[in-house]
Design a protein around this nucleic acid. Structure first.
Lengths: 334, 334
DNA sequence: TGGAAAAATGCAATCGATTGTATTTCGCGC
DNA sequence: GCGCGAAATACAATCGATTGCATTTTTCCA
């Protein structure tokens, strides 16, 4: 059997021109049904697939979307973070559904050009960035010149880049308020506010404390986002602090999990001695002992929003940032 | 300022031919140092990046590696599984280091052609498949005709496809033996042996039981791999079984975590009433209460092996499957 | 059956870079 | 100043598919 690699081979076999083959395989109505079917039969008889690179060059699109994970404000952070993974899986599904490939790239922003490099590489038709980290300025600058860019994260007044995320301030507020209602009056916030979203969550906590007249009763521990790195931070904190907090608002579920473990090591009962609440609403919250209360963001909906908006932006439309409602989920830890 | 998009634009600006520009940017010695530097200066003054699609078409490579996750033996399984995520992150790092992009694709094998489709799409220079699931036959068939394919998973005598993984049988053996040494004589194995690796782990357990003369004391629960799905399986099992196992060998850390929770809900102490050991050695084991004993596979090394071997295969070399040593890590749960 | 409109197909330019070969330029010795 | 070899650069084919336009074939009606 002849090797069939190109459209030209098919054309010869069918005794037609390459143009006809191209149109036939694309299912164009310009080609008579008879030849169209003949060519299609020939194509899958030989397992022929048109060369994607040639196609991409000609039609000027790659069929791929880049997903970037900037690990800005802390170098140790790993892509293995359950939050990223969850989001990544959802994006993979949503993009596949729309016929796009997902090109994954982990980025450690060493200079201000990490994003430009990817944009200009021409490898992808659009870009989704997961998390703003401390790179808001870079994101805004690039967004000003590159349309097909959507970011997961917080929204700030006047922000240039298009973002999808939950109302972090409100989420933080809800979390703190919940713990206050549980009778806590001294709270600690675990998380590094240098990252935009986390900063907003902290602000929300502060608002709640202020509303309760307890503004001076909130301690902030800029714990790492990574579980392995957060644990020692937390242990040190619990060991050194004079007045133990009665409630802990963790900036993420992963940090909350580390907190649970550290508390258990200090012989403190949850929620007996200390109330704990996480943030994100990951599936893993259900697997902790005790099961973790959390402020949930609808990641599935978020992923769909991002893909949707990105495709619209690729098509030239303009889109507004989306801020979703966070939701309090009370389980056993608070 | 003129828009500079193509090599031709640069050529005009520099007053040379496109060929010269191409060579200059590639740093070819054929071009005089003077023009070379002039052109390079011009290029980054205008932020010029050669079009990747054109380049790919011409040199016949994509610069991308596909990473596939077949979710064969259970449809509910999610890409959000911590094991996949960990592996994915490691692969992303290793591939980036070698200058390759990572194209992620989640696959639910509905027919025997899922792998062929990807291979023939021409989107990537090589393929890494994470986990054999129950698709060994498909993998072998494709491997016979497509060289640049490396698979994470178990190794079986006579296997056609090139795999990297740990000695699952040995790992299962170690796990069961450890629990036997802890004084357990009734064991349960949690995991669905339809997946090759898990089947091998179960065999190892059986070996250990046989060596101890306790062959009839092992119960198998084909629990789901996903945490959310495994938990009800396990709860049902614990509720229905007449003689409670004294030790549980979980086929993965995620299953072990579900087991920990279920046990705690049944009021059983770990390791007091029941000893538990997981498999994989994920970072998340450190975060459970109590911290989880496990049989660890060196995923970092595994990822590097896979990338290494894949590149050698792309280069035309042949490579043998790799079977790594599993390692027992004893923490608090056993 | 002639002929115009419609349908089907062929032709050739194009996407943007790479690269083998042809051509020009330069340096240098006589 | 000429000629020669080497160095530098230009030319043009090529990768494989898509697509506007030209051309051929078919259809159908008078």
């Amino acid at each position: 059997m002849v090797k069939v690699r190109t459209i030209k081979d098919i054309a010869e076999l069918a005794g037609v021109s390459t143009g006809t083959v191209s149109r036939a395989l694309a299912g164009s109505e310009l080609i008579s049904k008879k030849t169209r079917e003949k060519i299609q039969a020939l194509a899958d008889e030989h397992g022929f697939r048109p060369n994607i690179m040639a196609r991409n060059l000609r039609i000027q699109r790659t069929g791929a979307i880049g997903v970037l994970i900037p690990l800005g404000h802390e170098t140790g952070q790993h892509i293995s973070d359950p939050f990223f993974i969850t989001m990544l899986g959802l994006l993979a599904d949503a993009l596949t559904e729309k016929g796009y490939d997902l090109v994954l790239s982990r980025v450690i922003p060493t200079d201000g050009n990490w994003l430009d490099r990817f944009v200009d590489s021409g490898r992808v038709d659009g870009l989704i960035v997961i998390g703003q980290s401390d790179q808001v300025a870079t994101l805004d600058r690039v967004a000003a010149r590159y349309r097909p860019l959507v970011v997961w994260g917080g929204y700030t007044e006047g922000q240039v880049h298009c973002s999808v995320g939950s109302d972090n301030r409100k989420g933080g507020y809800i979390a703190a308020k919940h713990l206050l209602e549980r009778g806590c009056s001294r709270l600690a916030f675990f998380g590094d506010p240098k990252a935009l979203e986390i900063g907003q969550r902290l602000e929300g906590c502060r608002d709640a404390m202020a509303d309760a007249g307890l503004s001076d009763r909130l301690t902030v521990l800029p714990a790492h986002l990574v579980a392995e790195a957060a644990h020692p931070d937390i242990a040190r904190f619990l060991g050194s602090v004079s007045e133990r907090p009665q409630g802990i608002v963790a900036a993420s579920d992963v940090i909350a999990m580390s907190a649970l473990r550290a508390l258990s090591e200090f012989g403190l009962a949850v929620p007996g001695d200390v109330h704990v609440i996480g943030y994100d609403g990951l599936a893993i919250c259900e697997q902790t002992v005790p099961r973790l209360s959390t402020v949930s963001q609808d990641l599935t909906q978020g992923a769909h929003h991002m893909v949707d908006m990105l495709l619209r932006r690729i098509a030239g439309e303009d889109t507004q940032s989306v801020v979703m409602e966070p939701q309090l989920i009370v389980r056993m830890s608070s």
